[in-house]
């Protein structure tokens, strides 16, 4: 069921996920289109998330946006300091910016990082995790992981897990998507693009997510004038994803766009995606067990021991 509408306010709106912004020229969504998008969200009872560009929007846009309850996704590079202060989620694209930023303990942050930077600088994250309400890591080149990378990632998760355990022992409860999300989940909690959320782009057309817009503008799933027209809509749902519906790496983003990029099917994740998600899952299991040494913690969530990292390898048992 559709729950969220993401509105890309401009072609240069920040990326908050795996994809790169595929357009360099500004193209602000026409005001009437923005209003029509907001109306669409109201009629369909969708929660709206606005994705902002780095420049300041005209006042009449700000007014239109405030006519509806919403979330703001804003880049750390945004020149509008007021907007940044109001943002629900701040996106960092650079580690240096993150290290220089004034972090708010009541805010959520996303760090988009290449694996190489993560492998080099992950220790810095300990400080960030302790300072903010929530930190999400998005590895922008997850599809390039090698066997060596898997080993390194496993070690990084272990190291950061020790830090989070200490925080819990000290009575804090930091949220760090790749380690703490799975500890709290008893079912899949994925991106769900195309199933529970869709994106309205500045051209007035709907897309599965911003990545689909940037990859191919022709790849729309409807427009404001004619409404939604999602072909094969079932394939965006978990029940129609043979690997994922058997999986318990519940925190996995299950990125529909990466699925299509790596396997040509929106419902099938790559080997790399599955292994990374399972390394996180297993590290969460270890963390959960360790936290329980300090007291009662999420007893209703039982993360079982498993002997695989890619559920595809167990397909004969399904």
């Amino acid at each position: 069921m559709l729950e969220y509408l993401i509105i890309q306010l401009d072609d240069t709106s920040t990326s908050y996920c795996h994809y790169k912004i595929g357009k360099k020229e500004r193209r602000l969504i026409p005001l009437e289109m923005l209003k029509a998008g907001i109306k669409f969200g109201m009629l369909e009872n969708l929660m709206i998330q606005f994705v902002y560009p780095d420049y300041k929007l005209p006042d009449d846009y700000a007014e239109a946006i405030e006519t509806i309850d919403h979330s703001k996704i804003v880049s750390s590079l945004c020149e509008n300091e007021v907007l940044k202060a109001e943002a629900d989620v701040i996106i960092f694209h650079e580690w240096t910016e993150l290290s220089l930023a004034q972090l708010d303990e009541k805010k959520s942050y996303v760090l988009r990082t290449a694996k190489a930077d993560l492998f080099d600088r992950y220790l810095f994250l300990k400080d960030v995790i302790s300072k903010v309400m929530r930190l999400n890591i998005v590895i922008t080149d997850v599809e390039t992981f090698t066997e060596q990378d898997f080993e390194k990632y496993k070690q990084i998760l272990h190291t950061l897990s020790e830090h989070i355990e200490k925080e819990y022992a000290a009575g804090k409860a930091p949220q760090f998507n790749i380690l703490t999300d799975r500890m709290m989940l008893d079912k899949m909690n994925n991106c769900n693009a195309g199933a529970s959320n869709i994106t309205l782009a500045p051209n007035g057309k709907f897309y599965v997510c911003p990545a689909f817009y940037y990859e191919n503008e022709e790849d729309s799933i409807g427009d404001l004038e004619h409404g939604l027209d999602i072909k094969n809509p079932q394939l965006y749902k978990l029940e129609f994803a043979p690997i994922c519906r058997h999986c318990d790496a519940y925190q996995c983003k299950r990125c529909i766009w990466l699925n299509r990029k790596t396997t040509l099917e929106v419902n099938t994740p790559s080997h790399e995606q599955c292994v990374v998600a399972h390394l996180e899952r297993n590290a969460s299991r270890e963390l959960s067990d360790n936290i329980r040494k300090h007291g009662t913690f999420m007893l209703e969530i039982d993360i079982k021991g498993i002997d695989y990292l890619d559920p595809f390898d167990k397909r004969e048992e399904w």
Binding site: F240, P242, T263, L264, T268, S270, H271, E272, F312
Partner: peptide, 25 residues
Amino acid sequence: LIIGNVETGINENLLRPFLTLDRCT
């Protein structure tokens, strides 16, 4: 739908949808 070539071999990721495909899905 090309899944590889004789120079670079088979891209195993492109076989995953085929090998997990079932009747009902």
